[in-house]
């Protein structure tokens, strides 16, 4: 892909300013530092070599030691005054400072004083250098879970130790698992632990606020092919995917807009009266039932009828508890035992 002229100019100036302070540096190191290839660094050096002040006589040009270049080392001998690194622009400072501030507030950084100190000092040096322009963007991610859980995870990640965790799923099922931690990832409102799960014998992602307990063992983690290379983002679509799962169609009042914005749905249809209708695959009936109860005042209709009945049944059962509690009178029988219903309607429990 063609590189933009401004991005290349930035690197050309950056290379000169850096070399002026750093002395001779290998082509490979330069490429790593500036995030490009050694071949590109060679082209950059070639371009710099013929650039300079008007006149463009040999003394006017940026110059390198030719013998060093042949050995793969870039040794700047004449910078033509281009020795000062560039100030950060407002937008650049905003992007960097906002990311650092968000990072500083994550549980994973807060749980570790050493980490916290590094982020803190990087942030201080940056804001000293850029001024207060950076308040235009303000990002805060999830605070992220129990302090002890987070510190056990981050300690195990650093030491590369296996973890024992007690985890509760979105369907409210608790399980004990042994996992090899791979990455602690904070995305938006939640922190996630990416790990190899021995119980599932597969890679799994755990929401940190649902990890009830975490204990670091002294067992070293093992290599699990393919686990380390997964994309850094959580693939929400994959979590909800499943071509074979049944479709549900729900019509919401406008107030429930976040559902369409945050839940991966198959389609959203805006209706003339401001309502909207989403279609989604039901891969996790327990989660959907619970979410629809939460949003019920803004739910206009649910299809298929079996799903609507399931939601209504669960809610009616809960209502009966409040009634019986008030009157301390009527009792409820075994027919409405929650376990009976769960077993009948939650095929995906794991």
């Amino acid at each position: 892909m063609a590189e933009r002229a401004d991005d290349r100019l930035l690197r050309l100036l950056g290379i000169v300013a850096y070399l002026d302070g750093a002395g001779p540096v290998s082509v490979a190191d330069l490429a790593r530092r500036f995030g490009t290839t050694p071949a590109q660094i060679q082209k950059d050096v070639d371009a710099l070599w013929v650039s300079g002040t008007p006149g463009y006589w040999p003394d006017d040009l940026i110059d390198f030691d030719a013998a060093s270049i042949d050995r793969g080392v870039v040794h700047l001998t004449e910078a033509r005054g281009m020795t000062r690194p560039l100030r950060l622009g407002t937008r650049e400072a905003v992007a960097l400072v906002a990311a650092l501030r968000a990072m500083k507030a994550t549980g994973a950084v807060q749980a570790d004083p050493a980490r916290s100190a590094v982020v803190e000092s990087a942030l201080r040096k940056l804001t000293d250098a850029t001024g207060e322009a950076a308040s235009a963007v303000d990002v805060r991610l999830a605070p992220g879970g129990d302090r002890q859980v987070v510190s056990a995870i981050s300690s195990a990640l650093t030491a590369r130790h296996r973890l024992q965790i007690r985890y509760v799923t979105s369907s409210d099922v608790v399980s004990e698992r042994e996992v090899d931690p791979v990455r602690l990832h904070t995305q938006d409102e939640y922190a996630y632990l990416a790990a190899w799960c021995y119980r599932a014998a597969a890679p799994r992602t755990f929401r940190v606020d649902r990890i009830l307990e975490a204990t670091e063992t002294d067992v070293p983690v093992q290599e699990h092919p393919g686990v380390g290379e997964q994309a850094a983002e959580i693939d929400f679509a994959a979590l909800f995917a499943g071509r074979s799962s049944p479709l549900a169609t729900i019509r919401f009042a406008p107030r429930a807009r976040w559902f369409a914005e945050e839940v991966p749905v198959e389609s959203v249809r805006n209706l003339p009266d401001g309502d909207f209708e989403v279609t989604l695959r039901v891969t996790n009936p327990g989660w959907l039932r619970s979410t629809l109860i939460q949003l019920a005042p803004y739910v206009r209709s649910v299809a298929p009828a079996a799903l609507a009945d399931d939601v209504a049944g669960a809610a009616a059962e809960a209502l009966a508890l409040y009634d019986s509690g008030r009157e301390t009178g009527p009792t409820f029988g075994h027919g409405t035992d929650p376990r009976t219903r769960d077993a009948a309607t939650s095929p995906d429990r794991h």
Binding site: D7, L10, G14, Y18, P85, L86, A95, L96
Partner: peptide, 17 residues
């Protein structure tokens, strides 16, 4: 783009890896 530019500038200024 904004943050990558910032990084190029900071890497040009910073010593150490």
């Amino acid at each position: 783009t904004d943050i990558n530019r910032a990084m190029v500038k900071l890497r040009a200024a910073g010593a150490g890896d």
